[in-house]
Design a protein around this nucleic acid. Structure first.
Length: 653
DNA sequence: GTTTGTTCGCGTGCCGGTCA
DNA sequence: TGACCGGCACGCGAACAAAC
């Protein structure tokens, strides 16, 4: 849809400044995907300086900048995820936001939506505008802008590259170098990433590897002593969180300590230190500390509710539990937790509401949990770890996360493919044999860290009897909702409830990242090879000594390494959880496989070799959607950029 | 001879433990 | 609560082997 001309109130400079600010404000975010970071700059470079683009474009860029924290309560969840999972989630969000931003920029540049007020000069006055304007465009005229010229810095410093060389970032001056290919002193490109090094006393000090040259240059500038730290004390709130200030802490924030040049956040829970992560800035760490407090309050509230429900008279087995909806209104941590009979005794705990209970209120005793029994309190610690895993459900459960639990668990998580689940359903075998991966026609969500082995399933001992509590976290398009599903006599039944809930949630649209649902009646005998993924044709290898099935992909421990050959040397393209991801990286680096060549050939070869090889195509929207959409979006964005006269930075084949 | 796969070793930094 | 320390997993490149 074409925005109205009255909507076009932002200048290109404002957009570019916005992107730059976003990059410096959250370098970790942009570090996630170097190409995206480069491309977003390139995208805005394509818009002629001085012209106005739509407010919609800016809003999309806002979305990009806030991608790691989008979704309110969801951000709190993401922050507490394992870093690996979080990176992936952020990368996907960033990809989506990026593609939208490019799309908007494309609209602004290609479609006649770029407007210049007739009353003022086009470039100069518009470029000088520092603040967004909401009005004065009634007489504006619509033009089709020419393709944007490259910036002066870009043209002068790095012809052929799409990103400009910044001279300043994060409050310090960067060291430029005309002899260095990256444009920055002490910064070297290595396998598509940028390594910062500093020579001290004749030794080369490693400063870190970064996704962009600017970030590496910032690290170098810091190392040589030109870093001017921001006024930490002035930042008392960020990302919607009230930060915990501390006068005794060198960083200025409670729970934040400087660890080898980075900032580590920890929090004490039940007498134990909980590691919250390492961050580039003290403010980020402080935000993680505050965020953890809120998440903890949310978990406590849910568990408190569960405890209250459990105290209701139980008259036997699951039938009674499912048939009766104990509908107590429980107040815990300042929350009203009310069961909904219409939702099969589920109670929705609105995380967005829960996180509104700030730590200060909690610690001040303004509200107090209702009789959280000691057993529940002990369970909390375990539940927190499990909840983190569970909330990370958009990433398919690690394939080998359940070592020792048998093959039933190991078949789950193969890039969303419906792998063969040999395990027999039924709770009888769950303890002795291994985790059940399917039951009642549903594929169960496994957890690598939870005490029960299932996502969203919590173990609880009640009056000497072991019970299993099921909870599920669903995103309704606006915010995260934590839903209590009930108490079940077995972990499998609880896991089925979780799978059902997730399936119902995902059936509303194709965006569900985790493929749940009835298990196919005739699963493949082995994990099939994927011929296409993320919009790329993969290189399927027919070599007999290839163990992964993909050219350029080798097994590296429990993970998969993608490597390319350049000038006879092996160049690592990264390591990945799955062979498909590594194959995608390889295809992206060297180009796609021939249209109907290697994939089919590989399939045939495998078929002939073992008689059970299979090649399937994985499109976006299925189990691989979390990553699957990334390349497709990038491809779309690249095409858009190409039409605008530029290209995404890309590895040369 | 060239291309591709495997193995190995090193450096880095994440993460948990301990102590003041 | 903050600071320090150590173990270990991971990323990466180099060297070598194997296949084409």
């Amino acid at each position: 849809m074409q925005p109205s001309t009255a909507d076009a109130v932002w200048t290109t400079e404002e957009l570019q400044r916005f992107v730059q600010e976003a990059r410096t404000a959250d370098p970790r975010h942009f570090k996630m995907d170097h190409e995206l970071a480069e491309a977003i700059t390139a995208a805005t470079d394509k818009v002629r300086p001085g012209v106005r683009v739509t407010r919609a474009a800016l809003e999309l860029l806002t979305e990009l900048a806030s991608a790691p924290t989008a979704g309110g309560a969801l951000a709190g969840v993401l922050q507490n995820l394992d870093e690996k999972h979080r990176r992936r989630a952020i990368a996907v969000e960033a990809a989506v936001a990026y593609a939208r931003a490019v799309e908007a920029a494309e609209r602004a540049a290609v479609e006649p939506v770029v407007t210049v007020p007739a009353a003022e000069p086009a470039a100069g006055a518009a470029g000088a505008a520092g603040e967004p304007r909401e009005q004065g465009l009634a007489s504006s005229q619509t033009i089709v802008p020419p393709l944007a010229p490259r910036t002066e810095a870009l043209a002068a410093s790095e012809p052929g590259r799409t990103a400009a060389v910044a001279t300043e970032a994060e409050g310090l001056r960067l060291h430029l170098s005309s002899s260095n290919s990256t444009g920055y002193r002490g910064v070297y490109e290595d396998s598509g990433r940028f390594q910062a090094q500093h020579w001290v006393d004749g030794r080369n000090a490693y400063l870190g590897t970064f996704g962009s040259a600017v970030e590496a240059a910032v690290a170098y500038a810091r190392a040589v002593g030109e870093y001017q730290p921001p006024p930490v004390a002035a930042v008392t709130a960020a990302e919607g969180f009230q930060l915990h200030m501390s006068s005794s802490n060198a960083t200025g924030y409670t729970g934040v300590s400087l660890e080898r040049g980075r900032f580590q956040a920890r929090r004490v829970v039940n007498g134990r230190q909980v590691y919250l992560g390492v961050f580039g800035t003290a403010v980020e760490a402080a935000v993680a500390y505050a965020r953890h407090g809120r998440l903890r309050a949310a978990v406590e509230a849910a568990v408190a509710y569960e405890a209250a429900v459990a105290r209701q008279p139980e008259e036997g087995e699951e039938e009674e539990e499912e048939g009766e909806a104990p509908a107590p209104v429980v107040e815990a941590e300042g929350l009203q937790l009310q069961p909904e009979a219409a939702a099969e005794e589920a109670v929705e705990v609105d995380v967005a509401v829960m996180v509104a209970v700030d730590d200060e209120e909690e610690e001040g005793g303004a509200v107090e949990a209702v009789e959280v029994v000691e057993a529940v309190a002990a369970e909390l610690e375990r539940a927190q770890g499990q909840l983190r895993d569970w909330l990370s459900a958009p990433v398919v459960a690690p394939a080998e996360s359940q070592a020792g639990h048998g093959s039933a668990a190991s078949v789950v998580g193969q890039e969303g493919m419906m792998a063969g689940a040999e395990a027999e359903g039924g709770e009888e075998g769950e303890a002795a044999v291994g985790l059940v991966t399917e039951s009642e026609g549903y594929r169960l969500h496994l957890s690598s860290t939870g005490s029960t082995g299932y996502l969203g399933v919590f173990r609880r001992e009640d009056c000497g009897r072991l019970k299993f509590v099921a909870m599920v976290s669903l995103h309704d398009g606006h915010r995260m909702r934590l839903t209590y599903l009930g108490v079940f006599p077995t972990a499998v039944k609880a896991a089925v409830a979780v799978a059902k809930a997730k399936l119902q949630s995902s059936s509303g649209g194709p965006s569900s990242a985790v493929q749940v649902g009835p298990v196919p009646t005739a699963p493949p005998r082995r994990a099939p090879l994927v011929a296409e993924a993320e919009g790329l044709r993969l290189h399927v290898s027919s070599r007999s000594n290839n163990t992964t099935g993909y050219t350029g992909v080798v097994k590296h421990g429990s993970r998969f390494k993608a490597q390319d050959r350049r000038d006879g040397k092996a160049v690592s393209l990264g390591t990945f959880d799955t062979a498909v991801e590594a194959a995608v990286a390889y295809a992206r680096a060297v180009g796609q496989a021939p249209a109907q060549g290697s994939a089919a050939a590989g399939s045939e070869a495998l078929d002939s070799d073992e008689g059970e090889g299979e090649v399937v195509a994985v499109g976006s929207g299925d189990g691989g959607a979390a990553l699957g959409g990334l390349a497709a979006l990038q491809a779309r964005a690249a095409e858009a950029l190409h039409r605008m006269g530029g290209d995404l930075p890309r590895h040369e084949p």
